[in-house]
């Protein structure tokens, strides 16, 4: 009995340590997310699990990988926010994998909001996404596809930045024949 009790106590102690460790990790993760979400004060939604891109002409090793599969990926995805040039909407986005790989496909999880704090979803719009390298005078060699997952939230598949350097990510939101753009700079190494 005594021995059993000692074992249970040891187990309880180990579990307590494990729970404490997990809680600490979760806290760190939340802090990282909050710090990455510039301008948006709310808690971001969990990222959409990335879908595999059907590209029969690419080897399987070049298909987009989830953050867990990416050796160099940080454990916590970094949400980023950019306000449109006209100040009429906000884009909150995260890449998968993150950091964005060079010359490998990746996806974006994009959410549109009306306000700078990202509390009021912007719905009923169409979204197109592109990336350009103005220094080099070119964009991507692929055309990404955009799918609305839920109102105001989109999965952008088939992104591929084929060289390192300064890229400009362009989020074009259209309604009623009027397109407005949010643009942000991404440095790829």
């Amino acid at each position: 009995m005594m021995e059993t009790a000692r074992v249970d106590a040891t187990h309880r102690s180990a579990r307590a340590w494990a729970v404490a460790l997990l809680a600490l990790l979760a806290l760190l993760a939340m802090l990282a997310m909050v710090s990455a979400t510039v301008g948006c004060s709310d808690t971001p939604s969990p990222p959409i699990p990335p879908a595999r891109v059907e590209q029969s002409d690419r080897p399987a090793s070049q298909a987009p990988r989830s953050p867990a599969e990416t050796p160099s990926a940080t454990p916590v995805q970094a949400w980023r926010t950019v306000r449109s040039a006209a100040g009429t909407f906000s884009v909150r986005w995260v890449a998968a994998p993150d950091p964005i790989p060079v010359s490998d496909p990746f996806e974006l999880d994009v959410q549109l909001f009306v306000d700078p704090e990202c509390t009021i979803p912007l719905t009923g719009r169409s979204l197109s996404v592109d990336a350009q390298m103005p220094h080099h005078g070119h964009g991507m060699n692929v055309r990404p596809s955009v799918t609305e997952i839920t109102p105001g939230r989109y999965r952008v598949a088939g992104m591929l930045c084929h060289m390192p350097g300064r890229w400009e990510f362009l989020f074009d939101v259209t309604a009623g024949g009027l397109l407005e753009r949010a643009q942000t700079t991404v440095e790829l190494k």
């Binding site: 400009e168 397109l179 753009r181």
Partner: peptide
């Protein structure tokens, strides 16, 4: 090359 950025663009049909 980054000096000019698009703010908005109308389709002339809708306009």
């Amino acid at each position: 090359p980054f000096m000019v950025t698009l703010v908005r663009s109308w389709e002339l049909g809708a306009w």
